[in-house]
């Protein structure tokens, strides 16, 4: 075989290898059917083992208008920032929407910003929370048979995989005051941080992992940042 032919074949093999690498990296950075399914299933197995969730969950997909990507933007928007403990929750229903809301009484354990003091109890309202199979059936308007015991079965509505607050939960909240004196979490769920030891982090919505950060940090760092930017 001539040297020229060997060189040509070598070049073609090299091209194939380079193209293979290029395609495989692009395919993994985008999303492809069967492989994507496998990845999703793996993620799902880790869900909610630490939450007191019922057997049934209705998972909704909610869209937001603004991303608060850092502590600075959350702090600038918030009327109150504090560490709190959820004292009680109750489910609230609205006429036009299937998904129930949760009204939580949250006691201020440590006030970081805003006109609040330790011991104050603030009312927060979030979309999502607990209801029963009976409600799901009735609100859906679809006739499907349920036994008496099934009717009482608890169902949790989660939006983007994120639960509403639960009794006893310890959280750091960036809250915005509503006209009726209740509060909402800034950016729907973006200003709600879970506390695990000294580390705090917010839950990243399912499917938005590449667009949204958990802002994991220790409490001292959070306080330092908040003090730098608070109103």
């Amino acid at each position: 075989m001539k040297k020229g032919h060997i060189f040509l074949i070598g070049t073609i093999v090299l091209c194939s290898v380079i193209m293979g690498l290029v395609f495989s990296s692009k395919a993994s950075s985008t999303n492809q059917d069967a492989h994507a399914k496998k990845k999703v299933e793996t993620n799902v197995t880790k869900k909610d083992v630490d939450e007191k969730s019922p057997g049934l969950t209705v998972e909704s997909n909610g869209d937001i208008e603004t991303i608060y990507s850092d502590i600075q933007s959350l702090t600038k928007e918030a009327d109150v920032i504090f560490e709190g403990e959820v004292l009680s929750t109750k489910t609230k229903y609205y006429k036009d929407i299937t998904i129930p809301s949760t009204v939580s009484q949250v006691k201020v354990v440590k006030a970081t910003s805003g006109n609040i003091r330790v011991g104050d109890v603030l009312t927060f309202e979030e979309i999502g929370g607990f209801t029963t199979q009976k409600y799901v059936k009735e609100s859906s308007g679809r006739d499907f048979p349920l036994s008496k015991s099934e009717e009482k079965q608890p169902v949790e509505f989660k939006v983007n995989g994120i639960s509403a607050m639960k009794n006893g939960e310890k959280v750091i909240l960036f809250g915005g005051k509503n006209k009726d004196e209740t509060y909402s979490v800034i950016g729907v769920y973006q200003g709600k941080f879970r506390i695990e030891g000294d580390i705090i982090q917010r839950v990243v919505p399912k499917g938005d992992e590449g667009m949204y950060s958990s802002l994991q940090m220790n409490q001292a760092s959070l306080e330092k940042e908040v003090n730098q930017f608070k109103k």
């Binding site: 969950t57 997909n61 915005g176 509503n178 909402s184």
Partner: peptide
């Protein structure tokens, strides 16, 4: 829907259902 006047709400929400079954689209 328009359940309260908070500016910290979802723009829109899609929920997934199945007869007598909970559904997570994942």
């Amino acid at each position: 829907f328009s359940n309260n006047d908070s500016k910290h709400q979802y723009v829109a929400i899609t929920s997934f259902f199945r007869y007598q079954k909970e559904v997570e689209p994942w």
